[in-house]
Every structure is written in structure tokens, then in C-alpha cells.
């Protein structure tokens, strides 16, 4: 099946309608969960209306982790099958993952101000998400600094795999570190002890985020393929002129 869909032309024939489906599903889920979460759920007993930020913050944090694992999976596929689409997928996903991570960090800060009384607290979860953000930045830096694209793909793949095996260690060390330093006054939200009335909109929202990622990812991959095609076409149509220019340049 994998080799069937790895044909770029076939991929594009599938990606266009699938992207439209994902986009529509994302719009529906996001809009529905927004209305449900903002207006139809009761305010939290401790946090009041401020808890509603959970619907933006928690799915963003989930997606931040999911996208890194997705990139590592694409990197592994890129190493095993050496296929262009896997590399394109890994490259297209990195800025999206960084975006989700940044959203989680920013909404975390906005949430922290009324809840903890500070924009930033060196809490274990915030800190490990911050580290994840820097890991995304590293991947994006490779794509922008290393040439040609195939070499960048192999190196970014190696770094993504090295990163994904280290994530548990980083998470463990940061938890341990925050356990030492964390002040006792910090209020912590217990994830599993959440009322079903609040949980369902959260799950729909998470689904909406996932569809959004699917739509954005397919769109970005199609854009990358189109760019590559345009570059190849430009290379093929202008070789003689390029040669002429270098000859003139050499003579002068």
C-alpha cells in the first residue's frame, strides 16, 4: 500500500480531495467545539471561566507532541525507503509542529497569569514543551541551512530520530527537576479528574486540531511538490541561457 501511494502523481490525485475533506472536518469540529466549550459548558468551580482556555491549550500541547512523533516516523520511512514524499512530509510538518508548540506555550502563559499569578512558571510541563519548541527550531534550521534538499532531509531525519529517542529522558529529567524546585503554592490541574461535560468538547476540539493538521500538512506537501516541479521545469527550459551567461561572465 505504501509503495502504491508513494507515486507523487497518485499522491496528488488523492491529496486534493482528502485535503478538502480534512479542511471541512476541521472547520466543523473547531467551530462546533468552540461554541460547545465557550457557551454550553458550565464554568469551573475553582478556575471559573478561565478554564475555557483548556480548549485551546491542551489540544495544542497534544498536537505539539504528536507532530514530533509524526516527523520521526516520516524520517524513519525516509531512511528505509529513501522516498521523496517522506522527506517532504517531514519538512512540511516541522513548522506546523513549531506552531502548535508556540500556541501551547503562549496560551499556557496567558492561562498562567490569572491561575498562578505569573506569566511564566518553570513548571515541568511548560518547561518540557519549551524544550520541544527548541527541538523544532533545530529541525527547521537544518532545512534552511543545509543544501541540497536531499542532504538536508537525511540530516534532519537523523536529528529527528535522535530527538525522539531522547524525548522520554528529557521529560523524565525535567519532571524530576521541577519536583525539586517547584514552589508548593502552584495550583496543578489534574488531567483525568475532569467532568464529562467539559471533556467532550475538549475531545472534539482535539479532533478538529488533528484534522487541521491533516489539511495543512497535505496543502503544504502539495505546495512543496508544485515548487519542486516548477524548479525542475525552470532548470530544463533554461540551460542554454545559463551556459551563455557563465561564458560571458568568464570572458569579462
Amino acid at each position: 500500500m505504501l509503495s502504491y501511494f508513494s507515486n507523487p502523481a497518485r499522491f496528488e490525485r488523492l491529496a486534493r480531495p482528502l485535503g478538502a475533506v480534512f479542511g471541512a472536518a476541521a472547520a466543523l469540529c473547531l467551530a462546533g467545539a468552540t461554541v460547545w466549550g465557550l457557551f454550553l459548558t458550565p464554568p469551573d468551580s475553582e478556575m471559573g471561566y478561565g478554564f475555557r482556555l483548556i480548549y485551546v491549550h491542551v489540544p495544542a500541547a497534544w498536537m505539539a507532541m504528536f507532530v514530533y512523533v509524526f516527523i520521526a516516523g516520516a524520517a524513519l520511512a525516509g531512511f528505509v525507503w529513501r522516498h521523496m514524499l517522506a522527506d517532504i512530509a517531514a519538512r512540511a510538518a516541522a513548522p506546523l509542529g513549531a506552531l502548535f508548540t508556540a500556541l501551547a506555550l503562549i496560551t499556557g502563559a496567558v492561562w498562567g497569569k490569572p491561575m498562578w499569578g505569573a506569566w511564566w512558571v518553570w513548571d515541568a510541563r511548560l518547561t518540557s514543551v519549551l524544550i520541544l519548541f527548541f527541538m523544532y527550531l533545530g529541525l527547521m534550521a537544518i532545512w534552511s541551512l543545509v543544501e541540497p534538499t536531499q542532504r538536508a532531509a537525511r540530516i534532519a531525519g537523523a536529528v529527528a530520530l535522535l530527538g525522539v529517542v531522547n524525548i522520554p529522558i528529557i521529560k523524565f529529567s525535567v519532571d524530576w527537576w521541577a519536583g525539586l524546585h517547584q514552589p508548593a503554592t502552584v495550583i496543578r490541574m489534574d488531567g483525568p479528574r475532569i467532568d464529562p461535560a467539559m471533556l467532550w468538547p475538549l475531545l472534539v476540539m482535539a479532533l478538529g486540531y488533528t484534522f487541521f493538521f491533516g489539511w495543512a500538512q497535505l496543502t503544504r506537501m502539495r505546495a512543496a511538490l508544485a515548487r519542486r516541479r516548477a524548479e525542475n521545469a525552470a532548470k530544463q527550459s533554461r540551460p542554454s541561457r545559463a551556459r551563455l551567461e557563465t561564458r560571458e561572465g568568464g570572458a569579462s
Partner: peptide
């Protein structure tokens, strides 16, 4: 990872290694 990068390649290595060194 940064060995073949041009220009600002020298900063790429520490940028990649930094988060991994945190533990």
C-alpha cells in the same frame, strides 16, 4: 549534523545539541 551547512553552520550544532544536553 551541522558539518556540511554553509554560512551559519557553526550555530547549527549547538542549536541541535542544546535541548538534548538538558537532562
Amino acid at each position: 549534523s551541522g558539518a556540511g551547512a554553509k554560512g551559519a553552520g557553526g550555530i547549527l550544532g549547538p542549536l541541535i545539541a542544546g535541548p538534548l544536553i538538558a537532562p
